[in-house]
Nucleic acid binder design. Structure first.
Lengths: 192, 192
DNA sequence: CCTACCGATCGGTAGG
DNA sequence: CCTACCGATCGGTAGG
């Protein structure tokens, strides 16, 4: 079966995301990645100039995927509580999905290997993402559903969410939806 | 100044913890570590048989330090709320202290480079540590201060706590004590 | 703990 | 995208 170039590039990015997530960027070799997509060891360089460029692609794509998903949830409308719940679910679904989890893990744990220029790009995207959450918290406070909508609250929430990557296993005790609901229940005042 | 051996070994462990935390285990070279403690490149092997043994030392010592600190806080007695607050503070202080933060970051991000035997040792220590928290949550529920003391609650809490490593900066807006108090306020029902 | 060194591996490239 | 390869670096060791 003959694959066209864009698909091959995407295959490399996906394989790299899995390997970077599992072994770490530094411990992953080009040969590992090549083997994972059935290429010879020099061939990935036909698609990427350097190993670092592969990391950059994985990290920025991961950030884009999650921003798009949570942004869509935020744009759907509804009460502050409904919007927040939809964002929680969207974030967790991207983080824990079969596909998304490797992008997320690389994003969360390997970004410090980026060079300053790439890091600046990432931070720009990250700022936009965080603004989505800060606005959601502001609306929750206006609605009287939370007491504190500060930056620290947002960071503690992000911690609880992002840490799920470390322990969540599909086919474990709870579904993603149940976890989202539990967080919502812990943070927000009871309905009614 | 002549240093005796135990001190030199401890110096290596401390330097390794900082480098592992900053650059990652795989990207840190023995030469980096040797330079950090003013040795020649082959000399660290006089104190450790392999690079992996250095990681093992950092990770297990990090786990020991935090278990000791939080265990002491748990043993101090008081109401369920007082004990919990003391444990929160102890955990965060170890995680964010000048010394402890590098051990913590290595523990949290580089443990997957351990071999199965060392990983088993770590998990054993980790289980004991988690039991401390699970008991604290059980006591909080008995006291009617929280609704849910399940494993997922504990994991979400650990996420909020451990994520602080990513964003907390000394001389930033808040003290460690303030952050601990905020978490306590978010999670527990108001006093009185 | 230093000196001197080795074998293996790695990112990357030239030429096709 | 493969073949064949290079220079650099790395973990680790022997001998003192």
């Amino acid at each position: 079966m003959i694959k066209d170039e864009p698909n091959r590039r995407a295959e490399i990015v996906r394989a790299a995301s899995r390997l970077f997530a599992e072994k770490g960027y530094a411990a992953t070799t080009i040969r590992d990645i090549a083997r994972a997509v059935d290429m010879q060891s020099g061939s990935p360089f036909y698609h990427f100039k350097t190993k670092h460029d592969m990391l950059k692609a994985v990290v920025l794509e991961g950030m884009t995927i999650i921003t798009r998903a949570v942004g869509a949830a935020a744009a759907q409308g509804g009460t502050a509580r409904e919007v927040f719940d939809a964002m929680l679910l969207a974030h967790l679904e991207q983080l824990l999905a079969e596909d998304g989890r490797h992008f997320a893990a690389t994003l969360l744990h390997e970004s410090h290997h980026l060079d300053p220029a790439a890091l600046a790009e990432l931070i720009e995207q990250k700022d936009a993402y965080e603004a989505l959450w800060q606005k959601a918290l502001r609306d929750l406070k206006r609605s009287g559903v939370i007491e504190d909508d500060s930056r620290v609250t947002r960071l503690l929430l992000m911690g609880a969410l992002n840490w799920t990557v470390q322990w969540y296993r599909p086919n474990g005790g709870r579904t993603v939806k149940q976890i989202a609901r539990q967080i919502s229940g812990m943070l927000l005042k009871p309905v009614g």
